[in-house]
Amino acid sequence: MSATTEESAAASAIRPFTIEVPEAELEALRVRIAATHWPDKETVPDQSQGVQLATSQALARYWATDHDWRRCEAKLNALPQFITEIDGLDIHFIHVRSERDDALPLIVTHGWPGSVLENLKIVGPLTDPVAHGASESDAFHLVIPSVPGHGFSGKPTTTGWGPDRIARAWAELMRRLGYTRYVAQGGDWGAIITELMGVQAPPELLGIHSNMPGAVPPHIDRALQSGNPLPSDLPDDERRACEQLAFVYQHIAYALMMGDRPQTLTGLADSPVGLADFMLDHDARSLDLISRVFAGHPEGLTRDDVLDNITLYWLTNTAISSARLYWENKYPLFAVKGVSVPVAVSVFPDELYQAPRSWAEQAYPKLIHYNKLDRGGHFAAWEQPQLFSEEIRTGFRSLR
Rank of each mutant, 00 (worst) to 15 (best):
A201V: 07
D138E: 15
D236E: 09
I208H: 08
L245G: 04
D350K: 03
W69F: 11
V216N: 01
R165Q: 12
L79R: 00
H219V: 15
A255D: 01
E383G: 06
A54S: 13
A380C: 12
F294P: 04
S146H: 03
R181P: 05
T158M: 10
H95S: 13
A3H: 12
A381V: 09
R400G: 11
A269G: 08
F93K: 00
L104G: 01
H110P: 07
E136A: 15
Y179D: 01
H67T: 04
K330R: 12
R165N: 05
G377A: 04
G111M: 10
A134L: 09
T65A: 12
F152V: 07
L280C: 07
M279H: 10
L59S: 01
L76C: 02
G111H: 08
S98H: 05
D304Q: 01
G151A: 07
P332W: 13
H282L: 15
R292T: 04
C242I: 01
P203C: 09
Q386C: 03
A363C: 10
S98P: 04
E299N: 14
A246G: 06
D283F: 14
S2Q: 05
H297A: 13
G259L: 08
P145G: 04
A241L: 04
E85L: 11
L265Y: 05
R30L: 07
N309I: 10
W69Q: 00
I290M: 14
A360G: 05
P385E: 02
S232R: 15
Y370G: 03
S115E: 09
N228H: 08
R70S: 11
A215N: 03
Q354N: 13
S340R: 14
R397P: 08
S389K: 03
E238T: 02
F93D: 01
L79Y: 05
K366R: 13
A335C: 09
R222S: 13
A355E: 01
S358H: 03
A169G: 11
L26F: 05
M212D: 04
K41E: 12
A35Y: 07
V343M: 12
M257F: 14
I220D: 01
A74N: 00
D374R: 10
I107W: 05
K41D: 09
W69H: 01
E238M: 08
S346N: 05
A335V: 07
Q52F: 12
G162Q: 06
G300W: 12
T109D: 06
N329A: 12
D102Q: 09
G227K: 06
S389W: 10
A34R: 14
G151I: 05
P349S: 07
H150C: 14
S291Q: 07
R400I: 08
A284I: 11
L106W: 05
Y331Q: 10
G124K: 05
P217L: 08
A360V: 13
S210E: 06
A74R: 01
F348V: 03
R175A: 15
P203L: 14
E118T: 14
M1L: 09
E299W: 15
A169V: 04
L177H: 03
V21Q: 00
T36C: 13
S346C: 08
W359R: 00
G50Y: 14
T157E: 13
L205W: 11
L206Y: 08
I122V: 15
G151C: 06
A11S: 13
L173A: 01
R400P: 02
G190W: 09
G88K: 08
G124S: 09
L307F: 11
R222W: 15
L312K: 03
P145L: 09
P235M: 07
S56T: 02
C72E: 00
P148W: 13
